[in-house]
Design a protein around this nucleic acid. Structure first.
Lengths: 228, 228
DNA sequence: TCAAAAGTGTTAAACGTACACCCATGA
DNA sequence: TCATGGGTGTACGTTTAACACTTTTGA
């Protein structure tokens, strides 16, 4: 392949996207697919697809999300890293652009050969997908501290206890209720509504996300959405 | 293209690497190449190359670095982001994996059609390279605060004033000498040697990097090298 | 009336920030 | 001896972390 011509020869380098889809359900889960074809037949892997000529990387990821996890809203999707080791896929020179997504597991119908797995009890994965999940988890934890990412998987209205649960499950540790609330308020990312929970023992106040702050710098945050 | 066969058809999706090479020299500079061929002939662009079948993404980046900036040591290289918009390159569906590098400009011989440009006075760039530089700069600033990245472009021994200059140039602001030293020491990333500068008015003590800490969590740092 | 989760403040320690002078050296 | 950059400490405000009891409600 040469840059000195306007005509590009066909390439033997292939581009995939693989998506690490996280959901919260008791603990932190990842959606895996049991491969039905070689290579690594019958081995669990991240859902993925080859990128088509006429779709962006993000569109390819969304195609994967729709196919493997049903159509849904309240989705957080972010590019993670691009893996380009030469021998990572036996079929050829396959480069994968990894994405991670955070979804509300209640809103999803997963496909037949897919299943949720706790990030703390993962089977061994096909290709280099184990490495990808590990890195995605690290990134997710980091982002939680500086961004409003947790709000992307909560419904429009939520209680502070629900928000705290999201943090606890992702970070894998218990948090102090008073300190947590203090932190969230000082970030200024939520505002109270005048609504309350229904049908529970003692209804908690419902909060909502201050959407206008989504793309602004938030005190205590380093960034919210990366500007690319 | 299909995943259901072991034979992959040739692809019309192409993969490049583009490298945003930073150096420090009065202020923060980026290495740009004046394109000699269409598209965007005569326009400044990031140095880049199509990825060969038998090289990793990082190897391709290093090939670019060697060709455009001479061979050198003391190099920091990190993957930045992968750009996959459909129309970003008129030659076809070209996806670029952007890298950024931090080098010591004194150790470099740049190629003929290349030149350093201050990040504060950039010309308009080919393709979406302006966006890439902007993001690389943001990432560089962020990493400076949490990692020992600055040490990668200093020689084995350096003075604290030299280290501070690196921070000041990248962040684009003056720092307080006492607070800066306090911070660096509390990070525990440098250790004093018993050597001193030569040939200057008043020789300063030389410090060196605590290499054993390179991959450990450092207090005040969120991470040093990302584990992938 | 009881069980369960909601809600609410204070204190101490660590950290970040602003700020100015003396010292050692080579010219 | 002087000009230059090297080196050092303190005080204040902010942020973080540890910690426990009262309130409200539905069953």
């Amino acid at each position: 392949m040469s840059t000195s011509t306007n005509r590009l020869e066909k390439s033997e380098v292939y581009v995939k996207v693989d998506v690490c889809i996280f959901a919260i359900n008791e603990d932190l889960k990842v959606l895996l697919i049991k491969r039905s074809i070689p290579p690594d037949k019958e081995v669990w892997a991240l859902p993925g697809a080859f990128v088509k000529k006429e779709e962006t990387l993000e569109e390819a990821s969304i195609r994967v999300l729709k196919k493997k996890a049903g159509i849904f809203e309240n989705l957080y999707l972010e590019q993670l890293y691009t893996y380009g080791e030469i021998e990572r896929d036996p079929r050829g020179r396959v480069i994968t652009v990894a994405y991670f997504a955070l979804v509300d597991s209640e809103k999803i119908k997963i496909s037949e050969n897919a299943d949720w797995h706790s990030v703390y009890e993962l089977p061994s994965l096909a290709f280099d997908h184990g490495k990808i999940v590990k890195y995605a988890l690290q990134r997710l934890k980091n982002k939680l501290e500086y961004t409003a990412i947790a709000l992307d998987i909560l419904p429009e209205n939520f209680t502070l206890t629900e928000l705290q649960k999201v943090y606890e499950v992702i970070l894998g540790e218990k948090l102090d209720k008073r300190n947590f609330r203090k932190k969230i308020f000082s970030m200024g990312i939520v505002k109270p509504t005048d609504k309350y929970q229904l049908g529970v023992h003692r209804p908690a106040r419902l909060y909502t996300f201050k959407r206008d702050l989504k793309s602004k710098k938030i005190p205590g945050f380093r960034w919210t959405k990366m500007e690319l």
